[in-house]
């Protein structure tokens, strides 16, 4: 069994934290894992992407082949669409519905019409959910919770344990907030 994910967003939105948690859970579950990140200049408000490959057998390539991703998990709706050639025909997109507008002409219409023809899209307003629940810094964990319903290779419990592992050093309040955010996304 294998599960390939493309994580996307804008530099600073916290996609690497999501990647770190899934990777920690995979390590704990004894799975093979490859996680390719982007560091450096593109992080300055530019498009960022991370490929995450989980499997119970050896994984060779750090990069995903096209048409192989089971999921595109995105902190930003337009950013998810950049990586569509990597998505399997029956793969799903789990994305924040909130555009990140740090560019001049945000193509609202192109984004809307692209989503209309995609079969398996789960879009949620993680920023409003984060605000309503007083979790301003945990929008990315709401998104991870929503994705957890579909990541069959890991259980929600395994992911939650890894939230504890990753945020533990920042204290119990931070961990609890992130666990609560995860549950809100999961139950949404």
């Amino acid at each position: 069994m294998k599960y390939d994910i493309i994580l996307s967003g804008v530099g600073g939105q916290g996609i690497l934290s999501i990647a770190t948690i899934i990777a920690d859970a995979a390590l704990g579950a004894g799975l093979y894992l490859k996680q390719a990140e982007v560091h450096g200049m593109s992080q300055r408000g530019g498009a960022v992407e991370s490929g995450l490959r989980l499997s119970d057998s050896v994984i060779y390539s750090d990069l995903l082949p096209s048409g192989s991703a089971d999921m595109i998990l995105s902190m930003e709706p337009m950013e998810a669409l950049r990586y569509l050639p990597f998505l399997k025909k029956d793969g799903c997109i789990v994305t924040s519905s909130v555009p990140f507008r740090n560019i001049g002409d945000y193509p609202e219409e192109a984004v809307r019409s692209a989503y209309q023809v995609l079969p398996r899209t789960f879009s949620l307003d993680i920023e409003t959910l984060a605000k309503e629940n007083s979790l301003p810094k945990s929008a990315n964990m709401i998104l991870l919770g929503a994705a957890a319903r579909h990541i069959g290779i890991l259980t929600p419990e395994q992911l939650k344990e890894s939230i504890g592992n990753v945020f533990g050093k920042k204290g119990p309040a931070v961990t609890d907030a992130n666990l609560r955010a995860f549950d809100i996304g999961y139950n949404h």
């Binding site: 804008v10 498009a47 337009m78 569509l84 560019i103 192109a110």
Partner: peptide, 15 residues
């Protein structure tokens, strides 16, 4: 064959 990247997406260069 795979999904095509939609046309008219805006580039998001670093800044």
């Amino acid at each position: 064959p795979v999904y095509a990247t939609p046309r008219n997406l805006a580039a998001r260069p670093p800044a």
